Amino acid sequence: MVEDRQAAVAAAIGKVARLDDVPIALDHVCRACAQMLDVDGVSLCTISDLGLGEPIAATNALSDHAVELEITIGVGPGMEALDEGETVLAHDLTSVSSSARWPALAAMLVGLGVQAVFALPLTTSDVTVGVLELYRRRPKPLTEAELADAQLFADYALHLLVIGDRDPSGWGIDALLTGSLSAQWARVHQAIGVVSAQLEIGASQAYQRLRAHTFASDLGLREVAGAVLDGRVRFTA
């Protein structure tokens, strides 16, 4: 039975990649997951050098905005899964327990149209290297079968990350991570460097300041990063 589900998941991912006529990448894992399961969006993050998630793929605007919001605030199901290496299932963000657990984030995600988030860590040898997040517009838990399939998609993504640079096909880790979302996030790293230089502080502190400014300005993190790089926003001590 497990082998049948593994084959079904692999076939779904392969089908998406064949339609693009390119080798399988992490984006295909997310898109196949969204198509196969009853969810409204999927994102995938890897752990960054600064300790927070860095988005690699998002299937639509809903998942794109949701994962950026989690990273900006620095808390949430995905960030907990990255930090603790445990699956985090939040099937109703409108509940009292979710509001108490993530006071600001829960309300903001609901405002985006997300009412359920399911975060599955990508863990190997007790080291968490990423997280796969699934989103629903309505408060509804994953069924046991859906959760099992979601874990298979997470396992597939982990496999790509771990063996990507040793893939005999010649497609290394750079190919797996290539995409518009990765390119956009590269500008965030550039902006961190600018803020670090402007304030004469370390990269981690600069990232905190950039995220704090984003939260206060009601803009997206990538928008603020772009403004920093364009000189429209300057940080002073």
Rank of each mutant, 00 (worst) to 15 (best):
I71Q: 00
T72D: 05
I73P: 03
I73E: 08
G74T: 14
G74C: 13
G74Q: 13
G74D: 12
V75A: 13
G76Y: 06
P77K: 03
G78I: 00
G78A: 05
M79T: 12
E80F: 02
D83Q: 14
D83I: 05
D83H: 12
D83W: 10
D83F: 03
E84N: 14
E84S: 15
E84M: 14
E84F: 05
E84P: 04
G85A: 00
G85I: 00
G85N: 06
E86G: 00
E86Q: 14
V88Y: 04
L89W: 03
L89E: 06
D92I: 01
V96W: 09
V96E: 15
S97C: 03
S99I: 14
S99Y: 05
W102F: 12
P103C: 04
A104C: 04
A107S: 10
M108A: 14
M108T: 08
V110Y: 03
G111T: 11
L112D: 08
L112K: 02
G113L: 06
V114C: 01
V114D: 05
Q115E: 15
Q115Y: 01
A116Q: 01
V117C: 09
F118E: 07
A119P: 09
L120N: 02
P121S: 12
L122N: 00
T124M: 12
T124Y: 11
T124Q: 11
D126G: 13
D126V: 13
V127S: 13
T128Q: 02
V129W: 09
V129R: 07
G130C: 09
V131E: 00
V131L: 03
V131S: 03
E133P: 11
L134S: 05
Y135Q: 02
Y135D: 10
Y135T: 03
R137A: 13
P139K: 08
K140S: 14
P141H: 11
L142T: 07
L142P: 07
T143K: 00
T143W: 02
T143F: 03
E144M: 03
E144T: 12
E144D: 15
E144V: 11
A145K: 14
A145D: 15
A148S: 04
A150E: 09
Q151H: 13
F153H: 03
Y156G: 06
A157T: 00
A157P: 07
L158M: 07
L158S: 01
L158C: 02
L158T: 06
H159A: 12
H159T: 15
I163Q: 02
I163T: 15
I163F: 11
I163W: 11
D165K: 11
D165H: 07
R166P: 08
D167V: 05
P168D: 09
P168S: 10
S169G: 14
I173P: 06
A175E: 13
A175I: 07
L176S: 08
L176I: 07
T178K: 06
T178F: 12
T178L: 13
G179Q: 08
S180H: 10
S180K: 07
S180E: 15
L181M: 12
L181T: 08
A183N: 12
A183I: 14
A183F: 13
Q184M: 14
Q184K: 15
W185A: 00
A186C: 10
A186S: 14
R187Y: 09
